[in-house]
Design a protein around this nucleic acid. Structure first.
Length: 153
DNA sequence: GCCAACGTTGGC
DNA sequence: GCCAACGTTGGC
């Protein structure tokens, strides 16, 4: 069975790798994704045991903070159904959910953030989705080559 | 805080 | 189906 590799973005002021480390059983529901392309990955492509770079965005510095693994595959994001939730979406219903989430488990935190500026210096990574101009996708695929390379930096 | 790039909405 | 207006993301 082959494993897929991903990069998930989160603003650490909202939810950081440390928050995941401190979470019950070190597991979290990755809720709040409200972009269709990212949703499709969560619903259709993210598989059990896949590995995920945990990326801190809007941060100082922004960059890859650690690694998590997928412990539950796509299921309806119920925060979309709660009018009091910040991620509420009136178009989504219990019968026809629009948005999906997965569960992630903490694997490791890097000793220091692998910053975006540093990632940009490697020719091996020039095709990473993350480094493409204007790319803001919050759930994005990482190739095996990119995964292996980043882990040996 | 600024703003460029991107995504979504809704009038027509 | 077009596209202007608006909202969001995220680096800087």
């Amino acid at each position: 069975m082959t494993i897929n590799y991903w990069l998930f973005k989160s603003e650490p002021s909202v939810f950081s790798i440390t928050d995941l480390y401190n979470a019950p059983q070190q597991i979290t529901q990755w809720d709040g994704v409200r972009n269709y392309q990212a949703r499709n990955f969560l619903r259709d492509s993210v598989k059990l045991n896949d590995l995920v770079f945990f990326y801190h965005s809007n941060s100082e510095p922004s960059g890859i903070a650690g690694i998590a693994s997928v412990v539950k595959t796509g299921y309806p994001d119920y925060t979309a159904l709660d009018p009091h939730n910040h991620h509420y979406d009136p178009k989504s219903t219990k019968e026809k959910p629009i948005w999906y989430m997965v569960d992630l488990k903490f694997e490791k935190a890097f000793n220091q953030i692998l910053s975006l500026a540093q990632l940009k210096t490697y020719p091996e990574l020039q095709h990473m989705v993350l480094l493409k101009k204007g790319s803001r996708l919050s759930i994005q695929p990482v190739s095996k080559e990119e995964w292996v390379f980043i882990n040996q930096i």
